[in-house]
Design a protein around this nucleic acid. Structure first.
Length: 257
DNA sequence: ATGGTTGCTTAGCAA
């Protein structure tokens, strides 16, 4: 069984590539971020035609997350639901084959010191609180998505150039560690310890041709989740109209279907 | 190189 995360950067402009990717890989679970549309505009029919059920938390213009699965989705919850009036659609959770799957789109943060950066840091704290309140670290849980943080130098093609940005800094590594301390391991790193595996390359300034990439999309899991492999599909960054992110996933010891 | 590109929405914002 495979659980994959992919920031598609608009599910409508990426529909063709999304469907092609589903046809080629057909993972049991695919978590999407940056849908950039409301629920009615989600490509329900074409996804369902490929045997997937979708749980969608859409939003106009920005954000929007979804969980697609070939297996049954149960107990779907949307948002941090912590009483904060903030309504950004950045978290959706569902239970698949006994595993709680949490799909998140962590705020980018814009610039260090900006209001958006403060929002990012606060959102990560709220995520930890959500885990404390709504999930069990001793049960099988996978938290994946665009975390917008590269935890260490192995995750950055040009560490000196990215050091102390909103994506790569001691502060961000610390904030992510505070979330993980709830009971999450970097399931991807367990199988792929080598440096230079990236999940995102900026559209600007030839990021991909220069391989100026970062690993900011992650699959984290509790100890109860048994994994046997992990991958990042770098090929998905090539060709016509790619997202700036590629799919990143884990393979579970649990058999599929 | 404080640039560069893409998407949503239509000139400016977010990434």
């Amino acid at each position: 069984m495979r659980i994959v995360t992919w920031n598609v950067n608009s599910v409508r402009s990426r529909e063709e590539r999304l469907l092609r990717w589903l046809d080629a890989f057909s993972p049991e679970v695919l978590c999407l971020q940056e849908l950039k549309c409301e629920d009615p505009e989600f490509p329900w029919k074409s996804v369902e035609a490929r045997g997937y059920t979708a749980a969608v938390f859409g939003q106009k213009t920005y954000n929007g997350v979804a969980i697609l699965s070939r297996l049954e989705l149960a107990d779907v919850t949307r948002g941090l639901a912590d009483g904060d009036p903030d309504e950004q659609a950045r978290l959706i959770a569902a239970t698949v084959a006994g595993i709680r799957v949490v799909c998140v789109y962590v705020p980018n943060g814009s610039e260090v010191g900006s209001a958006k950066y403060a929002y990012k840091r606060a959102w990560l704290k709220r995520l930890r609180t959500w885990l404390d309140r709504h999930a069990d670290p001793h049960a099988p849980l996978v938290l994946c998505g665009d975390l917008n943080i590269a935890p260490d130098a192995r995750d950055v093609g040009r560490p000196a150039a990215w050091r102390d940005t909103v994506l790569y800094s001691d502060e961000m590594t610390h904030d992510l560690a505070e979330v993980s301390a709830w009971g999450l391991n970097d399931a991807f790193r367990r199988h792929r310890p080598e440096p230079g595996i990236f999940s995102w390359w900026d559209y600007r300034a030839g990021g991909f041709p220069k391989n100026d990439g970062l690993r900011i999309d992650h699959v984290l899991a509790t100890a109860a989740v048994r994994t046997v492999d992990a991958f990042a599909d770098r090929n998905e960054r090539m060709g016509d109209k790619p997202s700036d992110h590629v799919p990143v996933g884990i393979v579970l010891a649990t058999a599929a279907n």
